[in-house]
């Protein structure tokens, strides 16, 4: 998905380059579906009241109904509207995995999906896995193996790990699965490949792998 803020290139000033025109055009087209705007260049864009939509989904087993600006990501709906701030915003660009939640049994980077796309979804966030008093086994394992340092990627790592084990159980292959027809096993390579969407800049990977391996061994 294109992110206009990321597209800025150094420029003289007044001249809109062909690239920028295309970018502006793309942004406008992207908005057209929800705002009913005609195609205009960036400089002609007039501020418009953004469309809002009512959306209902379940978060951690509880039904939620929200009236949301259509541009609101699932992540911002969770963090800013529902005050479920366990899911982290590390990049807002789908590059770091800190915002990972589960929609059904599947991992989703919640910054790359709009909340209004989740009518009826069953969403599980880190807050739905356990509490400080009653940790989920994966949370306990992360504490035991020191699978975190600053803690900012941690909820995403844990949600990702829990869903990843379910994906393996469901027989979903990964990039490193050699036999696509056999039941995948949680080898070190499979674990590391499947967790690679979750960056930990503190570098707790070796410990995270140990925490996940312990839980996988218990549930296997």
């Amino acid at each position: 998905m294109h992110n206009p803020e990321n597209a800025e290139s150094p420029r003289g000033a007044t001249d809109l380059t062909r690239r920028e025109f295309l970018i502006a055009g793309t942004a406008t087209v992207a908005l057209t579906g929800c705002m009913g705007l005609g195609t205009k260049s960036a400089t002609e864009m007039k501020p418009q009241q953004a469309a809002a939509t009512r959306v209902s989904f379940h978060v951690n087993g509880k039904p939620c109904q929200l009236e949301l600006d259509n541009r609101t990501t699932l992540l911002d709906a969770l963090r800013e509207r529902l005050h479920l701030t366990g899911s982290k915003k590390g990049c807002d660009q789908g590059q770091c995995g800190a915002c990972t939640v589960m929609v059904g049994d599947r991992r989703v980077v919640s910054c790359l999906t709009l909340a209004v796309m989740h009518e009826g979804s069953l969403i599980t966030t880190i807050e739905g896995l356990g509490t400080p008093e009653h940790l989920h086994p994966m949370q306990t394992a992360f504490v035991k193996h020191d699978g975190y340092q600053c803690g900012y990627c941690t909820p995403g790592q844990i949600c990702s790990a829990v869903a990843m084990l379910r994906e393996i159980k469901a027989g979903m292959p990964s990039h490193v699965t050699s036999d696509l027809t056999a039941q995948p096993k949680l080898t070190a390579d499979e674990l590391r490949e499947r967790m690679s969407g979750n960056i930990c800049r503190c570098g707790a990977y070796s410990n995270i792998a140990e925490a996940i391996t312990e839980i996988a061994g218990r549930t296997a």
Partner: peptide
């Protein structure tokens, strides 16, 4: 020693700056 802030960090309940509603 396990970190004393571990239960907060692993449950997403350690509050970071932008989250102080």
């Amino acid at each position: 020693t396990e970190r004393i802030d571990g239960p907060l960090k692993t449950t997403g309940t350690a509050p970071y700056a932008y989250e102080r509603h």
